[in-house]
Nucleic acid binder design. Structure first.
Length: 341
DNA sequence: AATACGTGGTA
DNA sequence: TTACCAAGTAT
């Protein structure tokens, strides 16, 4: 007599099977995969939605299709391709990682976890994503999608944030299969994105509902509500934008705070006085712009000139032609203002 | 451990 | 309008 043993379905098996018939199609970084392209896509996708990333990814890969083609790129060129995407440190990290690969890894993009982790901008989740997606090696990831899927699956929503993270990493490690990691990793992210959504998850269509501790009983996560709301700090910036009919005078921002390395109108009052003497037209505008952690109150003085001119300045500056605007790294609100002139 | 770091979409 | 949040990492 043989006993029939009821084996509980494995999460990874269900996810892999579901992914093969229901995974998202048409994501550009899933075509003609190379480790380099997975790297670029994973960096762009950090804290950034797929829909937002797609045009930036396509433009970046069109400009630099291979790692080799990126070798000679300057930091400015890479930041320019990031213009408008946000979290610009990521672009600097790509430049610095590229330099490290060039100088320490013999120009060969790493194929192991430890070398990937040594690169700036690559943490455990991104390294895991590159290992599993580009190399089909069994490494776990823990992005927002996986956090949500596994958090509901194992019902660990009530833990404190740091403990929850630790627990979820353990679960992710445990559930990540040895084989077919590529399909599992993509699948669990697609599941989080299309079925196990933050709001109104579609449990009725979910392939893991039968083994999910929270299926059909998703309760809003209350752990965040008790946070004390601090007023966001207000930051005032006075810009002066000197411009002709078709050129703009921009300065590279060196502050170690926001928008580091991007090109902006002048923030130096001393220069503003000199500017005004020669100007043949002056307009003031005010704009508010919200960053994650602070509110920017921008005051911009537009000074019109007939011709561009040289200035005495310690900081790096350049006159940018209107048609070259897309080749310069600028924050979204600054580019918007310039395009309105 | 908590915070800095962008932007656009959604309710 | 305000508030939250999305393929996280570095400090």
């Amino acid at each position: 007599m043989s006993k029939i043993i009821q084996v509980k379905d494995r999460l990874s098996d269900l996810v892999i099977e579901w992914y093969r018939s229901h995974g998202r199609e048409g994501l550009p970084w899933r075509k003609n995969i190379t480790p380099y392209k997975i790297w670029i896509s994973e960096i762009m996708l950090q804290q950034t939605q797929v829909k937002t990333v797609i045009p930036y990814y396509l433009r970046f890969i069109k400009t630099y299709p291979t790692f080799n083609s990126l070798i000679l790129a300057s930091e400015d060129q890479i930041i320019a391709l990031w213009s408008g995407l946000g979290f610009y440190r990521r672009a600097k990290n790509i430049y610095n990682a590229k330099e490290q690969i060039k100088n320490s890894f013999n120009k060969k993009f790493p194929d192991n976890f430890d070398d990937l982790m040594s690169l700036p901008g690559i943490g455990e989740s991104t390294a895991g994503a590159i290992m599993s997606i580009a190399y089909n090696k069994s490494y776990p990831i823990l992005d927002a999608n996986v956090k949500r899927v596994l958090g509901r699956y194992s019902n660990v929503t009530k833990e404190s944030a740091s403990k929850k993270n630790k627990v979820l990493w353990e679960i992710s490690r445990k559930e990540t299969p040895v084989n077919n990691v590529f399909d599992y990793t993509q699948g669990v992210m697609d599941l989080g994105s299309t079925i196990c959504k933050p709001k109104d998850p579609l449990c009725a269509q979910c392939p893991i509902a039968s083994i999910c501790d929270s299926a059909f009983t998703i309760i809003a996560d209350s752990s965040k509500k008790e946070k004390i709301k601090k007023d966001k700090s207000q930051v005032n910036i006075n810009f002066t934008l000197a411009h002709t009919d078709n050129e703009y005078l921009l300065f590279k921002r060196n502050e170690k705070t926001f928008w580091e390395g991007l090109w902006l109108p002048s923030e130096q009052p001393k220069i503003h006085k000199i500017f005004k003497k020669k100007s043949c037209g002056e307009v003031h505008i005010n704009r508010k712009h919200k960053l994650t952690h602070l509110d920017l109150n921008m005051s911009i003085t537009l000074l019109r000139y007939n011709n561009s001119f040289d200035i005495n300045s310690n900081s790096e500056y350049r006159w940018v032609k209107k048609i070259d605007i897309n080749n310069v790294g600028m924050p979204a609100p600054i580019k918007k203002i310039i395009l309105e002139i």
